[in-house]
Write a protein that binds this DNA or RNA. Structure first.
Lengths: 259, 259
DNA sequence: GCTCATCTCCTTATGGCGTAAAGTGACCGG
DNA sequence: CCGGTCACTTTACGCCATAAGGAGATGAGC
């Protein structure tokens, strides 16, 4: 369930994203009992609670005591609603300036990580068709501001920004997908892993000989055994932290050879 | 459309993934006219051509001149079919050893990049529930073998492997999502970008003042203007290349401080 | 206080999805 | 030739986005 935003009429959608509180005209016909804002908030609530797959026009309408079709008075279609939802939640982001560029990047990444865990459905909106709303662009500009003191060239800077996004998204997706799978199947992460790996050693008795390095990697874990955090989530968080430091080290090294 | 593999009965599915050409017993009833292999190949063909959203049991059955329900004689459900498809295509991977660990990692990443562009639907199978088939594990072991000479500690190695996967997947997803959006909407990447950005400057006339760094980044492009490659694909490929070098530089730096 | 245009919101309908249930007829050993 | 077994089919269910058309509320002009 990857979903495209930014598919509707660009003029209409962009106007809704960037509108500065449009003046309410008085017009004939019954008074609206809903509003775009109310619908967007209801839709975000549905998506937060039920996931992207549970986000249906029926569900949003039901949460507001209306039918699905009632929403079409306010939004052109589901894709436009998604645009508005996407930019709406990005308004939650806004870390301030930091001591140096490394701290700034770390803070930006940490905030985005928490944001994705709070709104896992955002990870299912494809970045290949960016929404281009004000809140998303504000966040991008903040990252560039944090990175500015590093003094990178434009091509490298573009790569760093992409890398940061892929890093946070990849690791966060691991966590949210894992939670979603656990909820949908009623089988916890650890139960799933236990069942599969038990089957694996049975069906591939030569595992250790065929995969010596995977085996070594798997046995060399320093995590405390009595974790309350599921296996996959722990791994994802670790990969986020290590990956971030690797990237910062890579930027530093590139910075020196560039400058 | 993110889809979970590895949801069925683990015993049954793992046996099918790791089977060593099961002996064909003679049994009463009509002779099977299909086979698991034929079905998997047909399903891969459908997914390659129509994408994950077009992969339906009906479509696979139709390609084989059967109904959707006929497939259920051979596979337990769609999730099991997906497991088999996933591991089947991973059998295409297999880069050999390289001169040094950097070259090995680059070759591994390049091969995976091409693989994802060939089978874009694979990017929609969630990594939070790995299939654990032989071909996928072979590929993971090959990466570890390439990285072995770098002499990394287990935690850092795990981070590097995750980063590499996120890097290739993130950049490749950009390309495949972009192509998919273009096909589904009939609007090319560049057309979409042109329409949206034209609308953006109109609706946000203070863009340059509000987003000075984004503006600077956008105007400092060194790409040749007469590209035959769509904008988004060009960007994605560049981010893949820069990201890979950043990661290698980060590994090198970490390697030195570790060792 | 009427009419009429306009608007919100409703009901209904369409085609696609995975797959459960039940039916049809082919093939085998005896 | 019989009876069990199996491959494959038809039908049916609930859910999705949204097109089409209808009901009733409201405001403007008179």
């Amino acid at each position: 369930m990857v979903v495209f935003a930014a598919q509707g009429d660009p003029r209409r959608t962009m106007a809704m994203l960037w509108r500065a509180a449009a003046a309410a005209e008085v017009r004939p016909g019954p008074r609206p009992t809903l509003s775009v804002d109310v619908i967007v908030e209801a839709a975000v609530a549905v998506a937060d609670a039920e996931g992207m797959a549970g986000l249906s026009m029926r569900a949003v309408g039901e949460r507001l005591g209306r039918t699905a079709m009632a929403l079409y008075t306010y939004v052109a279609d589901k894709s436009e609603l998604l645009d508005l939802m996407y930019d709406h939640v990005h308004g939650e982001l806004g870390v301030g300036p930091a001591a140096d560029w490394r701290a700034g990047v770390r803070a930006w990444a940490e905030e985005l990580w928490a944001f994705y865990l709070r709104h896992p459905w955002v990870l299912q909106v494809s970045m290949a068709r960016p929404v281009l709303g004000p809140n998303e662009l504000d966040s991008a500009e903040r990252l560039l501001r944090a990175l500015e003191p590093a003094g990178l060239s434009a091509p490298v800077l573009r790569g760093v920004v992409s890398q940061l996004n892929h890093l946070v998204q990849g690791a966060a997706r691991m966590v949210t997908d894992s939670r979603r799978a656990a909820r949908e199947t009623g089988q916890s992460d650890d139960d799933w892993w236990y069942a599969r790996s038990a089957e694996l050693v049975e069906v591939a008795p030569d595992f250790g000989a065929r995969y010596p390095l995977l085996t070594w990697l798997e046995t060399n874990k320093d995590s405390t055994p009595n974790e309350t955090v599921p296996y996959m989530e722990h791994e994802a968080r670790a990969s986020f932290e290590v990956g971030l430091e690797l990237l910062l080290a890579g930027v530093e090294a590139t910075r020196l050879t560039e400058g």
